[in-house]
C-alpha cells in the first residue's frame, strides 16, 4: 500500500538517539552526507554499513523498517545503477554485446553508486525517524537563527519544513483513499501504454490537488485564529540544551570519519 512509504515519518521509541539534541542530529546528518561522498573503497563501505546499522540499533529502529521505506526509491536507484553500468568508459571490458558495453570501472561505479544512495537515504531518514517534527523545527530554527541578522527568515523556513514533513503521511493517506475510491468505480491504473497510464492518473491528481489546497487554507485559518505570529520574540516551551551525550555523539562520529579517510589511503579497491 502507498502508506507504507516511511520517508519523513517519525518512529517513536525510547533510545539514546531519540534523546540527542536535534541540533546535534541535524549537523551530524549534514556531516554524514559529506563523509559518504568521500568513501572510495569497499572497506570504507563496510565501515559505513556498520556505522549505519549501529546507529539503527542504538535508535531501536528495526533495519527492516527502514529497508521497507526504501522500496519506493528503488526505481531511481536501479535506473542510476544502469546508467553508470553502461555509460562508464575506461577500464577492462568485461562484456560486450551490440551497443552495450560493461567495463570493470562501470561495474565498480554502479555498485558504489547504489551503495552510496542506499546509505545516504538510510542515514538521513534516521534523522526524521528519531526526531519528532516539533524538535526538528526547534533545532532547525536555532541553527538558522544567526543567519537572521543577514535577513534569512529562520523561523519561517523551519515552520515551512515542519509543515511539509507533517503533511507527508497525511497526503499519502489521502492518496490511498482516492485511489481506492476511483478503483471502486473501475478506474484502471496499470494497463495500457504510457499515455493511457498518465491519463489514468488524472482522477487521482485532481482530487489530491484540491484537497491539498483546501488543507493549506484550513491550516492557515486555524493558525490565524490562534493568533499565530512567527519569528520575533517567540519563545518555546521546551528549551533545547546540549548534554554530555551530544559530545559522545560527535566523538563517535569523529572516529567514524577518521576510519573512513584512513581506509581511503590504505585500500585502493
Amino acid at each position: 500500500m502507498i502508506t507504507d512509504i516511511t520517508i519523513g515519518q517519525f518512529f517513536p521509541a525510547e533510545s539514546i538517539i531519540h534523546r540527542l539534541d536535534p541540533r546535534t542530529k541535524i549537523l551530524l546528518v549534514l556531516a554524514y552526507v559529506v563523509v559518504v561522498f568521500f568513501v572510495k573503497s569497499f572497506v570504507g563501505y563496510i565501515i559505513l554499513a556498520l556505522f549505519v546499522i549501529g546507529c539503527c540499533a542504538m535508535a531501536r529502529v528495526p533495519v527492516k523498517f527502514i529497508l521497507k521505506g526504501l522500496k519506493p526509491v528503488m526505481f531511481f536507484i536501479v535506473i542510476t545503477a544502469l546508467f553508470n553500468l553502461f555509460l562508464t568508459s575506461g577500464g577492462v571490458i568485461l562484456f560486450h554485446w551490440w551497443i552495450f558495453t560493461i567495463t570493470d570501472e562501470g561495474l565498480r561505479f554502479a555498485v558504489f553508486m547504489v551503495l552510496r544512495l542506499l546509505f545516504l537515504i538510510m542515514g538521513t531518514s534516521l534523522l526524521t525517524l528519531t526526531t519528532s517534527p516539533i524538535l526538528l523545527t526547534d533545532g532547525m530554527e536555532r541553527l538558522l537563527r544567526p543567519l537572521g541578522r543577514i535577513g534569512v527568515p529562520a523561523h519561517e523556513i523551519s515552520m515551512m519544513m515542519t509543515i511539509a514533513l507533517r503533511f507527508i503521511p497525511t497526503l499519502l493517506e489521502e492518496t490511498d483513499k482516492i485511489i481506492k475510491a476511483q478503483s471502486a468505480r473501475g478506474a484502471d491504473f496499470d494497463s495500457g501504454n504510457l499515455i493511457r497510464r498518465a491519463k489514468a492518473m488524472v482522477p487521482i491528481l485532481i482530487p489530491l490537488f484540491i484537497s491539498s489546497f483546501r488543507r493549506a487554507d484550513e491550516l492557515a485559518t486555524a493558525m490565524e485564529c490562534r493568533c499565530y505570529r512567527g519569528g520575533e520574540n517567540r519563545t518555546s516551551l521546551n528549551k533545547l540544551e546540549y548534554g554530555r551525550r551530544d559530545a559522545y555523539a560527535w566523538l563517535i562520529f569523529a572516529v567514524f570519519t577518521a576510519a573512513v579517510f584512513t581506509t581511503n589511503f590504505l585500500f585502493a579497491f
Binding site: I178, K180, S183, V202, P207
Partner: peptide
C-alpha cells in the same frame, strides 16, 4: 483482474466527496 468485481459490488466509501474530479 478485480475490475469485474468492482462493477458487481458497488462501494460508496465513507465521505465520498473527495472522489469527484
Amino acid at each position: 483482474s478485480l475490475r469485474d468485481v468492482r462493477f458487481k459490488v458497488g462501494l460508496v466509501m465513507q465521505y465520498p466527496e473527495y472522489q469527484l474530479f
